Simulated scan of single mutants.
Amino acid sequence: MDSKALGVKLKTLRLKNGFSQDELAESARVSLRTVQRLENSEAIPRMDTVKRIFQIFGMSPDEVLDWDQKEDKSFLLGMNISGLIFIVLPLLGVVLPLILWMSRKDKIAGVSELGRTLVNFQLTWALVYYLWTAFCHWLISYFKLSGSGDVSPDIVYNYLHIRVCVIFFIYLMEILMVCLNTYRINKGLKVKYFPKINFLR
């Protein structure tokens, strides 16, 4: 179960049983902030915290989560860092995280959510990269066809300068987002990749 579904289930049970967030936190011996973060899907929950909270409602962990999933932060970190392969070849930045996601999505807690978010982000920026590259090639071809067949050095210089600046920006976004989310995973927080188009839901 991903953190969003867990948050919805927790809030529904809490309200149904007449608990305030404060009362639930006190009964489960966790902080109020922990309950709030779980309900708002702001953090990847720890198994022992989930057990303590849901035991208040008389539920066993097996009724709440799919417990054949194991916690493996190192896999999540590795999967997240695999997005940096985008720098070598943008398409690989989509394919490698997708393979890692598909191979472990039912086995490791948090992989499903991270995989979906990371692949959507990588797809978005790979699309931007390839569309921009295609546009730049079309532009040079257009100048060649519309003129005598020769392109002036100024046009080539401006083309290369703009192309390099945009590609540098795309790579910078990739590096910053991967580093930010590596930090967030390490702290047990929910990943936040943006901007992205949600191709996969």
Score class of each variant (00 low, 15 high):
192 K>E: 13
26 E>N: 14
200 L>D: 02
87 I>G: 02
26 E>V: 05
76 L>D: 09
159 Y>K: 08
3 S>E: 11
176 L>S: 15
201 R>I: 08
95 V>A: 03
117 T>M: 14
153 P>M: 04
173 M>T: 14
142 Y>T: 10
192 K>I: 15
127 L>A: 09
123 L>W: 00
170 I>N: 00
29 R>L: 13
49 T>S: 10
143 F>A: 09
39 E>V: 06
121 F>H: 01
192 K>D: 10
58 G>N: 09
2 D>W: 05
98 L>G: 03
19 F>C: 02
70 K>G: 09
161 H>C: 14
173 M>G: 12
105 K>L: 02
134 A>V: 01
107 K>S: 06
92 L>I: 10
36 Q>I: 12
192 K>F: 13
37 R>W: 03
146 S>P: 06
139 L>E: 14
28 A>G: 07
191 V>R: 03
88 V>M: 08
189 L>K: 14
9 K>D: 09
196 K>Y: 07
179 C>S: 15
198 N>K: 09
151 V>H: 02
57 F>E: 06
108 I>G: 03
145 L>V: 13
12 T>V: 11
127 L>N: 08
144 K>I: 02
1 M>F: 10
89 L>T: 08
160 L>Q: 15
50 V>N: 07
160 L>D: 13
48 D>K: 13
28 A>C: 00
122 Q>G: 04
75 F>C: 05
154 D>I: 09
137 H>F: 13
22 D>I: 12
112 S>C: 06
3 S>T: 09
37 R>A: 14
47 M>W: 13
94 V>T: 08
15 L>E: 14
34 T>E: 12
72 D>N: 12
4 K>H: 08
96 L>F: 13
152 S>H: 06
38 L>D: 09
150 D>P: 12
146 S>H: 07
171 Y>R: 10
106 D>Y: 10
77 L>P: 03
50 V>D: 02
44 I>G: 04
43 A>G: 00
1 M>Q: 12
144 K>C: 03
53 I>M: 08
48 D>Q: 01
107 K>I: 01
87 I>P: 02
49 T>D: 00
151 V>D: 07
97 P>T: 02
56 I>V: 10
